[in-house]
C-alpha cells in the first residue's frame, strides 16, 4: 500500500499546498454578514429555548454536582454530604431530619419470607412502606405490590393489583411482591455506572445521588421492584419520617431510581422492617440467613418454599411458603 506514495498521479509539491478552488475566495460581504447575523440569532434562540434548564444551577449545588460515588466518600465527606442533604430537606420540605449511614452487620445476611397461606391482601404493608420510606404521597407510592391471584394458578396473568373489595376473597390468594434482593441481580449488572450494587448483607442499594436515571435497571428487573422518581416527591412536613438513611429512606431526588432496601436504616440497627411490623396477619418473616436459629431458617427447613421466577437464575433472598 505504501507504494501509492510514489504513484505517478501524485500532485506536485506546490499544488496541494494551495487551497483547491477559486470559488473559495468569492467573498460576498453581504452574505457573510447575513450568515453571521443568522447564526447569532440562532444561538440566541437556542439559548432562550434551553432557558428552563436554569433550574439546574438553582436546585443542584456545586457540591452536589461534584459529589463522588458513595463508595468513594470518606467519613469526612459523608458528614458534609449528610449535613447538606439535611439542610436541603429542611429548606424544601420543612422537616428536621437526621440522615445516617447504617453499615451492614458483619456476618449477617438478610432474607425475607412471606406466608402465602396467611397473607390476605389487606395492603397494610404498602401503607407502612409509604410512610416509613418517605414515598411520594401524590401517587401513594410504595415498594410493595400485592397481587390478587386466582386459586389454582400461579400465572400472574390471572392476577390483579387493583382489586378493591373485602379480602380475602374465597377463590383468591394474595402474593405481595417487592425487591427480591437477588444474589444474582440483573439490575446491578445492567447499571452502566455502578449506581446500584449489592451490599455484604445481601441488600441491593441505590446511591440516589449517583444515578443518572437511564432506567435500564427498571427494564432489567423481572419483579417490578424498581421505582423511578418521575418528579420530586411531595410529602407534608409533618408526615416526613425524620429517621433517614442515606442509602434507604431519605427523600429521593427527582430523576433517580429507588427500590426496596429492607428498611436498612432499621434492620441494620436490629429492628424489624416496617412492612413486617405492619402486617396484621403475621404473614411476614424476616431474619438472618446466617443464623441457624433464625425464623427465616426455620421457614426454609420446615416449610415448602418457593421463589418467584426461579428459572431466571436471579437467586432471590425473598421466599414464599405455604402452611
Amino acid at each position: 500500500m505504501t507504494t501509492d506514495n510514489t504513484s505517478p498521479q501524485e500532485p506536485h509539491d506546490g499544488e496541494y499546498l494551495k487551497p483547491l478552488l477559486p470559488i473559495l475566495d468569492q467573498h460576498s460581504t453581504r452574505r457573510t454578514l447575513l450568515k453571521t447575523a443568522g447564526a447569532a440569532l440562532g444561538l440566541a434562540a437556542f439559548g432562550e429555548a434551553l432557558s428552563p434548564l436554569m433550574v439546574i444551577p438553582e436546585n443542584v449545588s456545586v457540591d452536589e454536582f461534584l459529589q463522588q460515588h458513595y463508595k468513594e466518600l470518606t467519613d469526612e465527606d459523608k458528614k458534609k454530604v449528610f449535613a447538606r442533604l439535611e439542610a436541603e430537606t429542611k429548606e424544601r420540605f420543612g422537616a428536621d431530619v437526621t440522615i445516617t449511614d447504617s453499615k451492614p452487620i458483619p456476618g449477617v445476611r438478610f432474607a425475607y419470607a412471606i406466608n402465602v397461606s396467611k397473607c390476605n391482601g389487606n395492603g397494610k404493608c404498602m401503607e407502612a412502606c409509604n410512610k416509613e420510606n418517605n414515598h411520594h404521597r401524590g401517587v401513594d407510592q410504595s415498594y410493595i405490590r400485592v397481587l390478587e391471584m386466582t386459586k389454582g394458578s400461579m400465572d400472574m396473568e390471572n392476577g390483579s393489583t387493583t382489586y378493591d373489595h373485602t379480602v380475602p376473597q374465597d377463590d383468591k390468594f394474595y402474593l405481595p411482591v417487592q425487591c427480591q434482593q437477588c444474589d444474582n441481580p440483573p439490575c446491578v449488572s445492567a447499571c452502566p455506572i455502578e449506581a446500584t450494587w449489592k451490599e455484604d448483607d445481601g441488600i441491593v442499594v441505590v446511591d440516589y445521588n449517583w444515578c443518572i436515571g437511564c432506567r435500564y435497571c427498571e427494564a432489567a428487573c423481572p419483579y417490578h421492584a424498581r421505582r423511578f422518581n418521575w418528579e420530586l416527591p411531595e410529602i407534608p412536613a409533618e408526615e416526613v419520617n425524620p429517621n433517614q438513611g442515606y442509602l434507604s429512606n431519605r427523600i429521593r431526588p427527582q430523576g433517580a431510581m429507588e427500590k426496596c432496601h429492607f428498611c436498612l436504616h432499621r434492620t441494620r440497627e436490629g429492628r424489624a422492617p416496617a412492612c413486617q411490623e405492619a402486617c396484621p396477619t403475621g404473614a411476614r418473616v424476616f431474619g438472618d440467613l446466617n443464623d441457624p436459629d433464625s425464623a427465616i431458617n426455620y421457614v426454609l427447613k420446615n416449610k415448602r418454599v418457593f421463589v418467584l421466577k426461579e428459572e431466571l437464575g436471579t437467586k432471590p433472598s425473598f421466599f414464599y411458603f405455604f402452611d
Binding site: F65, H69, S189, I193, I212, G213, C214, A256, M257
Partner: peptide, 18 residues
C-alpha cells in the same frame, strides 16, 4: 436520562463505568 446533569458519571476515569 432523568439526570442529564450527572452525565459525567458515564465518562471513563472521572465517572464509574460498569
Amino acid at each position: 436520562l432523568g439526570r442529564p446533569d450527572r452525565f459525567w458519571h458515564l465518562m471513563p476515569v472521572i465517572g464509574r463505568v460498569n
